[in-house]
Design a protein around this nucleic acid. Structure first.
Lengths: 159, 159
DNA sequence: CTATGTGCAAAGCGTTTGCAGTTAG
DNA sequence: CTAACTGCAAACGCTTTGCACATAG
């Protein structure tokens, strides 16, 4: 499921501004990687970004994807997360949200739920440290995989 | 913080039984890896297990650690988790629990809190899939790192 | 004894890095 | 123009695998 057009454009402009503010050049490679990350809700990994951008810039290299993604993370425009084992995945949704991860296909869905946001470090965490963020991770089987029992969409290790 | 002696012995016996039940041999290498995983609450990675077991069996190889850990995961005695970026970490605590992860040193603490267990898939997740497990991840700075501001205990990438 | 497990070394995957040529500003 | 960026290839860290020897049962 792609990000709504307006939201995507907003994100793209924000990232471009951040790059410019750092005095970094807006090369067409960078712009396409930015568009790819900003426009996806699937928390894509570097390989997926690379594959998709390659349809537009066939000469782009994986290195540029990795470097641009790392830059966006540094700039705070994107977060890296390890939702599944295997490659790091990039998330352009900066709103506070939670995740549902399919144990069969590895697909990830954002979950925005004010009820989950209430989960706060309670007495149990006292003495352990100071909590800065709370993320709820739901694991299960996505509706798509439930329908096609047995078949896996992508070969990604579960958990 | 090590696991309580009795609990550790219970876990060790459970794992040995599971290995026997599968017709697998209880080699001294396997037993030491089992003891190491069962006795740690720190969610150690393969390298840490390897380093510690090596003090008892100097000739053990990393491969055996990986293989034994993989076997224990298959047998359901241990779970693999990626709490931080970097190496997979093993968790011998099968009780339902949550995690606090220090963003500075990467240390992980188990959190058992019935209040957190109440977090359930609410309306928001409807239509996404069927939820099987819920894990709450708290991120922040552990008390130890708060005390020694600036210094990091271990060099592990945060988040 | 003999099937299983071990250590070794080599390969695998995802990712990072040094370099020389390329390009945005 | 020239500093910044790219693509390449090589290196990296973590993990898995094929093989011949070693050992638990």
């Amino acid at each position: 499921m792609p990000v709504a057009h307006d939201e995507m454009e907003r994100r793209v402009e924000e990232m471009k501004d951040a790059l410019r503010a750092r005095g970094m050049r807006l090369t067409h490679q960078r712009i396409e990687v930015v568009r790819e990350i900003a426009g996806s809700e699937a928390h894509p990994d570097a390989e997926t970004i690379y594959r998709n951008v390659r349809t537009r810039i066939p000469t782009i290299s994986r290195d540029t994807v990795y470097r641009t993604a790392a830059t966006l993370v540094e700039l705070g425009c994107v977060t890296r997360t390890t939702l599944t084992h295997g490659p790091v995945r990039y998330d352009a949704n900066l709103e506070h949200h939670h995740h549902f991860v399919c144990m069969r296909c590895g697909a990830a869905h954002d979950i925005v739920d004010p009820a989950l946001d209430k989960v706060r470090a309670s007495a149990s965490s006292a003495g352990i440290g100071s909590v800065e963020t709370v993320e709820v991770r739901l694991r299960g089987v996505c509706t798509e995989c439930e329908r096609s029992t047995g078949t896996t969409r992508r070969s990604r290790r579960k958990t």
